[in-house]
């Protein structure tokens, strides 16, 4: 399953010297770089885990990588093309990527049914494709089928859940619905920002298995270099150990350790990483 060393594919997404400084709110407070000169690359079909405590800049980094924030210094490149605001590469990156947030109930519109929420990105993509932004009679052919398929892929019962509202779901189910919403447009990059932090431990395992099976499915495709890549953000090494190929540890906006997950788990170099390991033992 793991990527083999003999065929190093070109990275799908790279960031060079990424820096983001937030304007300080209070007077007299030093301007602190949330992300400070980080280099990162993401291979096709790879799962990269970004680990760090709250305030370490991991969310900022991920938004920079998806082109949602403009870096103060450094550059993001998607398939080798620089992602500049409004460029073709930026549009392609937005089209080919999808997001999963920490709190599933905040990421699903409480007044929409699950089916409608899940279908939304697909409809948006079709509108874009047809060029008729306000076409009343949209081509909805097979929409319900596709929603049902993607809900099944995240182990949710489409028959029951497609017409349910988020408030009728448990946290774990809602998060899987949010994952389905991200998957329906077949993204090449899936960004999961603390996808398991807001749900309880048994639901976390369910979500983990869902993400694992999605990765496994994408790896079984005919062209492995075209598989889906995933960036998973977490504060907990234990949660990502089974799914990540590579781990990047952030402390205060800087990378302190990076490497294959086995190397990090077995031979942590930094004391901070050792603390993370200690915190993740039973």
């Amino acid at each position: 399953m793991r990527l083999t060393d003999d065929a190093p594919a070109d990275p799908i997404l790279t960031g060079k010297g990424l820096t983001k400084v937030y304007a300080s709110t209070g007077s007299g407070m030093a301007r602190k770089a949330a992300v400070d000169g980080i280099d990162v690359s993401l291979l096709p079909g790879e799962c990269l885990a970004i680990i760090g405590e709250s305030g370490s800049g991991k969310t900022t980094l991920s938004r920079l990588l998806l082109g949602q924030l403009r870096p103060d210094a450094g550059q993001v490149a998607y398939e080798g093309r620089p992602v500049l605001h409004g460029s073709q590469a930026a549009k392609a990156l937005a089209r080919d990527s999808a997001l999963v947030f920490q709190n599933p109930f905040a990421s699903l519109d409480p007044r929409w049914t699950i089916g409608r929420s899940v279908a939304e990105p697909l409809l948006a993509a079709r509108r874009r494709g047809s060029g008729h932004l306000w076409h009343r009679r949209q081509d909805g052919t097979g929409l319900a089928d596709q929603v049902a398929k993607v809900l099944s892929a995240v182990q949710l019962d489409p028959d029951r859940l497609m017409t349910a509202y988020p408030s009728d779901l448990s946290g774990g189910q809602a998060q899987r619905a949010a994952i389905a919403r991200a998957l329906i447009v077949k993204p090449r990059i899936l960004l999961a920002d603390e996808p398991m932090s807001a749900v309880d431990v048994s639901a976390r395992v369910g979500i983990l298995h869902t993400l694992q099976s999605i990765m496994a499915q994408s790896r079984q495709q005919a062209d492995p270099s075209n598989g889906m890549s995933m960036i998973i953000i977490s504060h907990d090494l234990g949660v990502v150990q089974h799914i990540a190929d590579r781990v990047m540890v952030l402390v205060r906006g800087k990378v302190v350790e990076e490497g294959p997950v086995n190397a990090i788990l077995n031979h942590p170099k930094q004391s901070y990483t050792r603390q993370l390991l200690a915190a993740a033992t039973l």
């Binding site: 048994s202 976390r204 395992v205 496994a216 907990d236 234990g238 997950v261 993740a280 033992t281 039973l282």
Partner: peptide
């Protein structure tokens, strides 16, 4: 059993080397 299994799956074992491929 569910709770214990979940806890075991989401933590590293004491030696830190338990890492299985999927």
């Amino acid at each position: 059993r569910t709770l214990v299994r979940a806890a075991r799956e989401l933590t590293l074992s004491a030696d830190g080397g338990k890492h299985e491929a999927d």
